[in-house]
Amino acid sequence: MFQANQTSVTVFIFLGFSHYPKVEVVIFMLCLLMYLFTLLGNIILISTTILDSHLHTPMYFFLSNLSFLDIWYTSSAFAPMLANFVSQKNTISFSGCASQMYFSLSMGSTECVLLSMMAYDRYVAIFNPLRYPIIMNRRVCVQIAAGSWVTGCLTALVETVAVLQLSFCGNSIINHFTCEILAILRLACVDTSTVQLIMLVISILLLPMPLLLICTSYVFILSSIQKVRSEDGQSKAFSTCAAHLTVVVLFYGTAVSMYLKPSEVNSQEIDKFIALIYAGLTPTLNPIIYSLRNKEVKVAVKKLLVKSPFRIVLISTLN
């Protein structure tokens, strides 16, 4: 499918953060720490939601999917970068770059849809609590999660194929630390207006529209919370919603700044640092946000870690 490109460009070279030699090692250490914390935090969160029967609810089912997405998304972006930094090669094959771009896009796109579905789940739980188990039954939850994955993977496939069909005329130096689609698009030596239009349409479908659904859901959620007479009920509702809103602001804020900024704005250096937040910091903070702001998760994690040799440190962190 990509034979024409593979004959002209077989290897891509990352510039990464070589323009900042004084802080390059610091950035590497920060990325390594974020990656390790992302793996540890999300694996613990997934294990907790699976092993604790009290967390076998729609919200934690979607949260497990979110954690799984974050692990794969961060791994696709950071693992090759960290390996290249250690080996001092800073290169990636054409097929490797295509795979990395596809996985990053598919995980990011899926998360966009999944976060909006999590907002809908909170809306049903708070606005219609009596019928919540019926509306959000196991079959519906699986269908919603599967729909999110299929949507993300298909839109990523469309974007990846569109970009890789372009001619790069031997341009192989990527001013980024990963095969980010905008960085690859800048290497093309032909007209990219059609690809940019495809990306714009998909970006609108995956960013403003889900964000509008989330905002609409929370307007109804907040109005319903105000009607709750019990202070404990209000506190619990605000806690779960606040955690989700924090994740939404972090994720969508960085995504919108990257993919929906004006085309005339050329900010490749800024994009690299935004990508660090988008691919590293947000997945690292997700399990912390959900566990620290949710008593059920904190209790379940403590039970899971009770036999761990590191339980004292981890439990004190949760407290």
Rank of each mutant, 00 (worst) to 15 (best):
F37M: 14
F37K: 11
F37S: 12
F37R: 11
T38H: 05
T38D: 03
L39I: 04
L40H: 06
L40Q: 07
N42E: 05
N42W: 01
I43S: 14
I44W: 15
L45C: 10
I46M: 01
T48K: 10
T49S: 01
T49I: 03
I50K: 06
L51P: 06
L51M: 10
D52V: 01
D52W: 01
S53N: 04
H54N: 13
H56F: 00
H56V: 02
P58I: 07
P58E: 05
P58K: 05
Y60R: 10
Y60T: 11
Y60E: 11
L63T: 02
N65M: 08
L66D: 04
F68E: 11
F68G: 08
F68I: 10
L69C: 07
L69F: 05
D70I: 08
I71E: 02
I71G: 01
W72R: 10
Y73T: 11
S76Q: 02
A77N: 03
F78H: 02
F78Q: 00
A79I: 15
A79W: 15
P80K: 12
L82W: 00
A83R: 07
N84S: 03
F85R: 13
V86K: 14
V86R: 09
S87N: 03
S87T: 01
S87A: 03
S87K: 00
Q88F: 14
K89D: 06
K89L: 06
K89A: 04
N90C: 09
N90G: 09
N90E: 08
T91C: 09
T91H: 08
T91V: 10
I92A: 09
S93R: 14
S93I: 13
S93P: 07
S95P: 07
